[in-house]
Nucleic acid binder design. Structure first.
Lengths: 205, 205
DNA sequence: CGTCGCTTTGACCAGATGGTCAAAAAGAAT
DNA sequence: ATTCTTTTTGACCATCTGGTCAAAGCGACG
């Protein structure tokens, strides 16, 4: 067995720069709309140099996507079945909203991928993702059984949290256009609105 | 003044076929990802033939977008300030959800455009759209003043309706993957869920 | 210093892409 | 049937795209 070559400092730096640049470009243009040249120049490299680190455009994209999926689902994994139901759900909403605020490019990357039919992560969606959501749904149903939250369709509850929070990243341009120039940061209001919404919907009785 | 040439039957048919094909392709691939050849063959025409009807790919896209924007906002315009507040809002939610079910391509087209920075409709967003939303927001605030619905941020209420309903068109693949093969039509459940959600949030007291 | 492996580059390629054009084919009108 | 306009097409073009390759540059280490 040949020892795998050690990863050099330059490799680490350039790979990271490439992935960051690719996130910029892919999230704004989608896979087809992005060009390797754009990514390369945004990363401060020549095209052949970029292709020295990744064998193809496709490889950069899937590397990004794979690395991101886990991060993206972490907030849902952090939901604690032993905690207070409403507080847990509100905390999940808040974490997702923070991700929209702090990582809008990642959100848009997923949005682009899924709108365009999720050709590269269909498997993950009906595997990892589905299992995780099913588990969460069971917890939510249990909370409803115990009368600790009002009963709602748990799968659609999860969908609604995703759509409401990601909207502020994916449709940021529209949100800002509608709110006007005066509003520099829509997130505080969004947070208050969503907390009110989920509290009223989920409070029993 | 030269009389404008009459529009022939063939022109009407082919223009319609092109726009329909373009909707298919653009909504799935975005502007950059779509090719004129794909649109042409999907419309049953050769590429030069297609370019006989529209001067450029860009022209097809903007024609589509312009034609669609009005249709897309009609449900919001139909909201009646004189009606019952909760019923009006629920009806708006329902109409938007029906549009996601019946016109998913249109929804995805807008989603693609906005995610990618809305380069071609930024003006419309901060003009027509913003004015319409502002008017609606005033109505909603008035209803809250009168105590006929609970007070919520009206702009974010509108955002939430958009995001929740369009999610079922734009992220259709994800919704179906998570719900599993057993579910053939997520819309009835979605409708029930959204009605519950908005009713609980907006019912006063 | 010299060597060896990692990194970078310019030149290049084949295929795709948006778009043009002259000419042929097909209708419409008489 | 003849003419005139509308429609369709094949051939073509410049540019861009993802990707290759051999050669040159560079850095760490003895």
């Amino acid at each position: 067995m040949a020892q795998p070559r050690p990863v050099t400092r330059i490799q680490r730096k350039n790979r990271a720069a490439i992935l960051d640049a690719a996130l910029d470009v892919f999230s704004l243009k989608g896979f087809d709309g992005a060009t390797v040249d754009q990514i390369a120049s945004s990363a401060g490299l020549s095209k052949p140099n970029l292709l020295y680190y990744f064998p193809s455009k496709e490889a950069i994209y899937t590397a990004l996507l794979g690395e991101l999926l886990d991060t993206w689902l972490d907030p849902l994994r952090a939901l604690d079945p032993g905690g207070d139901p409403l507080a847990e759900i509100l905390a999940y909403v808040q974490r997702k909203l923070e991700m929209s605020r702090d990582f809008p490019r990642e959100s848009r990357l997923f949005a682009n991928e899924i709108i365009q039919g999720a050709p590269r992560i269909a498997g993950e969606l009906s595997g990892t993702l589905r299992d995780l959501v099913d588990d969460t749904a069971k917890v939510i149903d249990l909370w409803a059984d115990e009368g600790r939250i009002a009963r709602v369709n748990p799968h659609h509850l999860v969908f609604s949290i995703w759509s409401l929070t990601q909207h502020y990243a994916d449709f940021d341009v529209q949100v800002r256009a509608v709110l006007g120039e005066g509003v520099t940061d829509p997130f505080p209001e969004a947070e208050a609105y969503l907390r009110t919404m989920f509290t009223r919907m989920l409070t029993p009785g």
